[in-house]
Structure formats: C-alpha cells, structure tokens
Amino acid sequence: MSRMGAEALTVPPAPSSPKAAPEGAAGAIDVSAKRIRREHLGQLLKSWSFRIGGAVLLFWIVCAIFGQAISPYGPLDQNLLLVNAGPSGAHWFGTDSLGRDVLSRVIVGSRDILVIAPIATLLGTALGAAVGLVQGYFGGVVDNLVGRVVEAVLALPVIIVAFLFVVAAGPSTSTLIIVIGVVFALLISRTVRTAVLQERELDYVAAARLRDESSVHIMFVEILPNVLGPIVVEFTVRLGYAIFTVATLSFLGFGVQPPTPDWGADIAANSGYLAAGYWWETLFPALAIASLVVAVNLVSDSIEAVVNQ
C-alpha cells in the first residue's frame, strides 16, 4: 500500500484502484481479540524485515533517549583547531565546519525527529479518524463538503502545504507537530471514511440506531473498534512518511533551528562544503535519515502484512 502519502493524497475518483478496498469488515469477525493479537505478534517476530527494521529503529531510539550520555563528545563542543577534519580514530565521522564532532551530532540529532514524527503522526491519526468517522457516518452534504476541501488542499504537495503553514506560524517544534498532524489528518481521513462507509451498512449499526444510541456513541463506540485495523496500518505507514516530512522541513530550514543538532538541518548547513570534498559532514547524517526511514518502513510493512492477511 501507499508508503508515502504522495500516492494516497492523489487518488483520482475514476479508476478502480485496488488499494482503496477497505479491510474494515475483517475486524467484524471477532474471535477472541487477545488470541488474534498474540498470533499476530508471533508472526511479526518471525518476519525478517520486522527484525532488521526493529533492530535499527531500536538503535536510534536508544540514541535518542541517552543522547549525550553515549556520544563521544558534546554535540555543540567546538574544536577550532580541527575544522572540516576527515574521519579518524578520534573522530570516527570527522568534524564539521565549526569543528564539532559529526558522530556526536548524528547520535544526539536523532532525538527531535524521533519525538516530533511519532507525536505528529499520532495527532494526525486521531484527527483523521475523527474526521473520517464523521464523513463516513453522516455522508451526504457533510461528506461532500469536507471531501471537497480535503481534495482542494491535497491538490498541493504535502511538503508545500506544510511549509506554507510553518512560514505562517514560525518554525518551532509544536508548529511542526501541529502542521504535520493536520496535513496527515486529511490523508488519513480518506482511508477511514472508506472503511466507515462499509461498516455503516452492517446490521450492528442498524441495531444501535434502533436502540436509539447517539451518533457519537455509534461512531466512536460501535464503529471505531471495527475500523481499528486500517487505522493502525495508516499510523504505521504514515509514521515513515512523517519522518520523511520532518527531515525535509528541517533541511529546508523550517524545522529544528541550529545549533541544536538535527540531521536535516546539519545536512543543509554543510551541503555547501560538499563541492570542497568535505563529504562526511553531510553523508553521515544522510545515512542516518535513510536508515531510520527504511527501518520504520520495514516495520510498518510487516505490520501491514500481518494485519491485512
């Protein structure tokens, strides 16, 4: 399924897109949820992509938690006698244009991205699920109106929408979280809406209506648990894309501000030295981002495979 949003955000109405098929109905057959969950976990642990991705992800989480405690130098410590020095025994990843240890900055730089991306994705999933539930459940005018606005905003690339918002609000951690959360909510609402449309026709919803339950109750207590499958998949898939987006916004200068170590910002700050041959200052943060996004996607892909089978 869509790994990056760019595809999902542009689903045209006409073609029979196979990926739009909702998995919602699967959740309706509830044979002891606990047992299913345990089986899922067992299958996950057996999959190689989950093991490798999980190991890399765990490594970066450890770096993010311990940061300075495990980095060889302080990420802001400058050694002006050793500027733009290549990788050596003392500085494995070399030093940057201000004489700071690149390895230490890579280790500590994992923190912000690993805080911002998951929180933003969580916010986006919660908001998107709520909007999708309302759209799918009420249908009609509400659905059309919200759908049109979502369509219009998503006619722009996610990165551009995000950076316009950040320019308006000024770059800060909370802005990044809110902006990415809101944009992702638009993407996620579509998937949830499709799933809810299927659920809405089922007997248990009709029964709840006959019991005179409130709309809020039907949406969040009756329907929500049955569309959790696609929502979980959305969360894990979007998490990889959130890391992509946070890194890109930082690179463009709309994220974490210097001198705080940050992979994207460090690459932007040092890419000018590439032509001079000082490749280690940008290559190592770049490899860090690459390893993190690929790891997250390996994990989300194996989760998706298990949930959807």
Binding site: M4, A290, V294
Partner: peptide, 8 residues
C-alpha cells in the same frame, strides 16, 4: 521511495 530526495 521512502528516502527523502535530499538524502539520496
């Protein structure tokens, strides 16, 4: 497809 353009 998951690696940001500036990284690759």
């Amino acid at each position: 497809s998951t690696v940001p353009e500036f990284v690759s």
